[in-house]
Simulated scan of single mutants.
Amino acid sequence: MAFKFLNLWSTDIGIDLGTANSLIHVRGKGIVVNEPSIIALDEETDKVVAIGNEAREMLGRTHRDIITIRPLKDGVIADFEATEIMMRELIRKANINRMLIGKIVVDVPSGITEVEKRAVRDSAERAGAREVHLVAEAMAAAIGVGLDIGQPVGNMIVDIGGGTSEIAVISLNGIVHHSSIRVGGDEMNLAIMQYFKKNYNLLIGEKTAEHIKCTIGSATPLAEEIRTEVKGRDLVDGIPKTIEVSSVEIREALEEAIGTIIDAVKVALERTPPELASDILDRGIVLTGGGALLKNLDERMREDTSLPIHVAEDPLTCVVRGCGKILEDFERYEKVLLKHRRM
C-alpha cells in the first residue's frame, strides 16, 4: 500500500548522460535541464563550485584550487564520484525532490560493458532513484525521432554524440545490428586543436576548438567559404597571438573524423540483412545527436552512401525525448530496455 502511495506521488525522469551535454526529461513536464556535462569542484573541500554552463565558462580559466571535470569520456563514466555529484546537482537544478524520484531511464552506448552499465546504475541509484532502467542510445534516439520501431521494417539511426557515434539498424522493437565507435564531437575538437598546433604552432583550448567547429566547420565545400579570427598562445615565443583561418582549413582538419564515421556507416550497411537493407534504401538514414548539426554532413553522407539522409528535428534532444516517451508509455516500451544481468 505504501509503495502504491509513493508511486502516485513519485517523479519519473529520463536522463541523457552525454559526454558533452546532459539532459533531463521529467514525465509530464518535458525537458527541464540541458547543460554541458562539466562540473567545477573546490580541490580542498570537494564542494561544488559550479555545474553545467557556469562550469563550462570556467574551462581553462581556473586557479589551482578549482578543478573542472568532465566526468564522462567516450560515452561512459570516467569519474564515478564526479558523475554521481553531477547527476545529483542536475536533478536539484530540475527542482526535483530526490525523495520522490521513482523510475529513472538512462541511455547508454551499445558497446558498453557490464561493469560500465553497473556504474551508470549505481550513480542513478545514489542520486535517489528507486528503479533504474537502461536503454541503448540509438534505440532512445529512434523513439525520440518518432520512428515506429515495432513494425517489421528496417530503420537506420546514426547518433553522433560528443564521445561516441552510435549506428543501429532497428526492427520489431529490437536492434538487428549495432556498432559504437569512439569518434564524435570531442574527437573533432581535438582534431582542430592538433591542426592549429601542427600548422600554426598555436595552442588553442577545447572551448575555442568547439566554437570554431560550430561556426565554420563543414563536411563539404560551402557555397561561400567563411573566414574567422582565432586567438591562442604561440608555442614558439609563448605570447598570445591572433590568426585568421578559413572554413576550408577546418574542413581539412575534420576530414579524418568524418571519414571514420562514414566508413562505420558503410560497414553497418554491409552487415544489414538484405530485406532490411531494401527498407533503408527507401526510408533512408536518420541523423541525430549534436554532430548531426555539422554543416553539410547530411550532404556528404548522401554522396558517399547514395542513400536518403534525414537530419532529425532538434537532433540534440532526440535521445532524452526518447527516454521521456518510454516513461510516458512504459508498458509499450518496456521490451526495448536492456536486461539487467547480475554480476
Rank of each mutant, 00 (worst) to 15 (best):
L17H: 01
L17M: 11
E255N: 01
A140G: 10
G52V: 11
P221G: 10
M139N: 05
G205H: 03
L134I: 06
M188R: 09
G324A: 08
R56C: 00
L202R: 10
E328G: 03
E275I: 02
I309F: 00
K197T: 13
E57T: 12
V245D: 04
R64L: 07
G217T: 14
G162L: 06
Q151S: 13
D279T: 01
L294M: 10
G259N: 03
N189L: 02
R61H: 15
T317W: 09
V236P: 04
I15A: 04
T164V: 05
N95I: 08
S180K: 11
V236R: 13
E270V: 13
E137Q: 08
N97M: 14
E35R: 01
E125M: 00
R92I: 02
I170L: 06
E252W: 10
G154L: 09
R182L: 09
V336K: 10
A124P: 07
A253C: 07
D279W: 07
E89C: 06
A20S: 04
A264S: 06
L190H: 04
N7M: 15
G75K: 11
N173C: 03
I239H: 14
T305I: 11
W9Y: 14
L172C: 07
R98L: 06
V32T: 13
I181G: 02
F5G: 06
G146L: 00
E328F: 11
S10W: 09
G52Q: 13
I262N: 05
I157G: 00
D282L: 10
I69N: 05
R98C: 09
N199Y: 00
T208V: 12
G259K: 05
M99W: 15
M99D: 15
D12M: 09
D282A: 05
I38G: 05
C323H: 05
T11G: 05
T317I: 04
V105A: 02
D237A: 12
D234A: 15
H133N: 11
V33C: 05
E81P: 04
K93Q: 02
D79Y: 08
E43S: 14
E275Y: 13
I38F: 02
V230I: 00
M87E: 10
T228C: 13
I38R: 01
A40W: 15
E35Y: 03
V135L: 12
E89W: 10
G102I: 06
G185R: 02
V106H: 07
